[in-house]
Simulated scan of single mutants.
Amino acid sequence: MTLPYTLTLVVRREAGVLPPAVIEQARELVSGAPPVILSDGEAVDIPCPPLTAWGPGLEEIRAGFEGQPIDVLLTRTRGRRKGLLVADMDSTIVASETLDELAALAGVGERVAEITRRSMNGEIDFAAALRERVALLRGKPASLLKTTWADTHLTPGARTLVATMRAHNASTALVSGGFTWFTGRVAELCGFDIHHANQLGIDRDRLTGTVAEPILGRAAKLESLRSLAESRGLRMAATLAVGDGANDLDMLREAGLGVAYHARPVVSAAIHNRIDHADLRALLFAQGYRLADFVE
């Protein structure tokens, strides 16, 4: 009989291997079946019954591995492989906050970074925060965009995540509260099918300090998830969303598998599944992909 849930353990590759004792400890905690190796020493699946009120919950299981670079994810066994990926860009698919980096080059880095921090923690409205940050860039040379891009790097595992899901007939979308100037380049570099973001105002060779309305923020990200799923004839259960900030919360909550990736505290506290240690390849393990299935 197939058990209805799967507990997945993933260790950060650079930190070493997943200890057999940890795997057995997790199996005992959830009364699980024998583990299925997804990547030797790196990731395993443990089929299990539902985590009940009288047994340990997911946070208790995580607490048992505190201090170890191990991520713990719980998914329904049925329909684990998703047909749609919707991903945030900044601090998710790329390792930096592109607006913060741009602002630093423009000489207003500290002011913009503080607004970003408050916005991503859900302390202030995203749209208002974006307008305020962009206004500080007024009159700055547009060439700073190219300089920022030269120092922007994909998060480890990003290309593998997108390529593997596309190879298995999933659609992939980059949906960002950042700017199309960056998402277009990231989408091409990483292999996303489509991208949506905000339009940064540029007049000749200068930034205007404006962003086109309406602003793509928290509600628009959720709507993108819904509309993309509908256009592909997918139920919400067949979708995967990943992000790190407060403006990602609604889409993470509604997706069939919503994952907080190295997220802000307000997001980590609200989302059932999260990746705190491993790279984006963990999203493939969470869907039951084996290392042999990965497309590099």
Rank of each mutant, 00 (worst) to 15 (best):
A269H: 12
T210H: 12
T92R: 09
G184N: 14
V186S: 00
T6A: 15
G79D: 12
L84Y: 11
L102T: 06
L144K: 05
N273R: 06
V72Q: 10
M251K: 05
V108K: 13
R281G: 00
G177I: 09
L9D: 02
S143M: 09
N121F: 00
M251R: 05
E24D: 14
S119H: 06
A187G: 11
C48K: 01
M236N: 03
R111I: 07
Q199H: 11
L174C: 11
D88H: 06
L9E: 02
D193K: 02
L38D: 04
L234A: 08
A229P: 09
E14N: 04
R111S: 15
D125R: 10
L284R: 02
H153T: 05
T116Q: 12
H196E: 11
P47I: 12
L130G: 03
F126K: 04
R159N: 04
V94K: 01
A238Y: 01
R81Y: 10
I115V: 15
H153D: 02
L58C: 09
T52N: 11
V94W: 01
V44S: 02
A142M: 05
G288M: 11
P265W: 11
A220D: 14
N247H: 09
V11G: 00
T148E: 11
P56M: 07
P69F: 12
A197C: 08
L207N: 06
G107L: 09
R274Y: 08
A129V: 04
H272D: 13
R80D: 05
D125F: 03
G83W: 03
F182G: 03
G191F: 13
R117Y: 12
T172F: 14
R62K: 15
V11R: 15
G83F: 09
A212I: 00
A282P: 03
R138Y: 00
K140G: 04
G217D: 04
A187V: 05
A220H: 05
E101R: 08
I46F: 07
L85A: 14
E59D: 15
G109A: 12
L216I: 15
A197D: 02
R80C: 10
P19A: 14
G245C: 10
L154Q: 05
P49R: 02
G256D: 05
P20D: 13
A163N: 13
A53P: 00
G55M: 07
V259G: 01
L7D: 01
L3Q: 14
A26N: 06
T164Y: 08
A63I: 00
T180M: 07
C48S: 08
R111G: 04
D250F: 14
G209S: 04
T180S: 15
G157N: 04
A135I: 02
A237N: 08
T152Q: 09
L144N: 08
T155K: 01
A15T: 12
A170L: 08
L29T: 05
G258E: 03
I202H: 08
A255T: 06
